[in-house]
Amino acid sequence: MSAAPTFPPLLTGVAVVPGEDPFEKACAMAALGCDGGTVVHDLRVDRMRMAAVFAPEVVLEQAMAMLPVCGIGFQNALGALAPPEVAVHLTWEGGIRVNGARCGRMRVTAAQDAPDAVPDWLVVGIEVPLIQTEADPGLTLDITALRDEGCAELDAVELLESWARHMLVWINRWEEDGNAPVHAEWMGLLTGVGAPVERGGHSGTFLGVDDRFGMLIRDSETTHLVPMSSLVGETR
């Protein structure tokens, strides 16, 4: 692993002290008024964690696009650095899957959770295991780590830097063209479409997402919408 990561001009990196959670640190910094574009990170031998602070200028339901934007950025970054046989997919609620197995997660929270209000800040966090730390990884076949999936030579600093660059690319596309390109890219990475699902008090078939990335669930009578803003704070 190389030294300190280098970020594009619009982003500022902040390394946590040992024992700190980058997501919680980012939330605390955002509450104190840090600039949007702050990326808090913790890179260890066995895992990498990072969290980005955003300063939305739109209501929460629109700002939630930053969750798929960060996920797409991570998939693009890992795709650029990992061997070509490594497949990365995302779940609607923020799960990361590598070659079909669970490999980390994303989470999101904001200063306010009202969907129609502009939040003072929004934070998206990503954590990914590099090495499995379970006593017997063979007992958890649905859980994996990047090194187990052909990424033994992957440098966490390079992955963090690549994620930052790809994330900025997708933020720019979102700002210029709206949700459409993000929606199209994310749908190609989304797992679970067509499968049974329970979410937001509804159960049925996961049909896909609407134009604001809300989950569409079809039961025997109708289609229900679970807005993406319902994820705010869910896994904090």
Results as ranks from 00 to 15, higher is better:
residue 3 A to M: 09
residue 8 P to G: 05
residue 11 L to N: 04
residue 11 L to W: 10
residue 16 V to Y: 02
residue 20 E to I: 11
residue 25 K to V: 02
residue 33 G to R: 13
residue 33 G to F: 15
residue 35 D to R: 14
residue 39 V to G: 03
residue 42 D to P: 01
residue 43 L to K: 07
residue 46 D to K: 14
residue 47 R to A: 13
residue 48 M to G: 05
residue 49 R to E: 11
residue 58 V to L: 11
residue 60 L to E: 07
residue 60 L to M: 10
residue 62 Q to D: 15
residue 63 A to F: 10
residue 64 M to Q: 05
residue 64 M to P: 04
residue 65 A to F: 07
residue 67 L to D: 10
residue 69 V to D: 04
residue 75 Q to F: 10
residue 77 A to R: 02
residue 81 L to R: 03
residue 83 P to W: 12
residue 84 P to Q: 12
residue 90 L to V: 06
residue 91 T to C: 00
residue 91 T to A: 07
residue 94 G to D: 00
residue 97 R to K: 14
residue 100 G to S: 04
residue 103 C to Q: 09
residue 105 R to H: 12
residue 108 V to W: 04
residue 109 T to H: 06
residue 110 A to C: 09
residue 113 D to G: 09
residue 114 A to C: 05
residue 114 A to V: 07
residue 118 V to D: 10
residue 119 P to I: 06
residue 122 L to C: 08
residue 130 L to E: 03
residue 131 I to S: 05
residue 131 I to D: 07
residue 133 T to E: 12
residue 134 E to N: 13
residue 136 D to P: 02
residue 140 T to A: 12
residue 150 G to A: 13
residue 150 G to T: 14
residue 151 C to A: 15
residue 151 C to G: 09
residue 152 A to F: 12
residue 155 D to W: 08
residue 158 E to Y: 06
residue 163 W to T: 07
residue 168 L to S: 05
residue 172 N to G: 13
residue 176 E to Y: 09
residue 179 N to P: 09
residue 180 A to R: 15
residue 184 A to T: 14
residue 186 W to T: 00
residue 190 L to G: 01
residue 193 V to S: 10
residue 196 P to G: 14
residue 198 E to Y: 04
residue 201 G to Q: 03
residue 214 G to T: 00
residue 214 G to F: 06
residue 232 V to P: 01
residue 235 T to A: 10
residue 235 T to N: 05
residue 236 R to A: 11
residue 236 R to N: 10
residue 236 R to E: 10
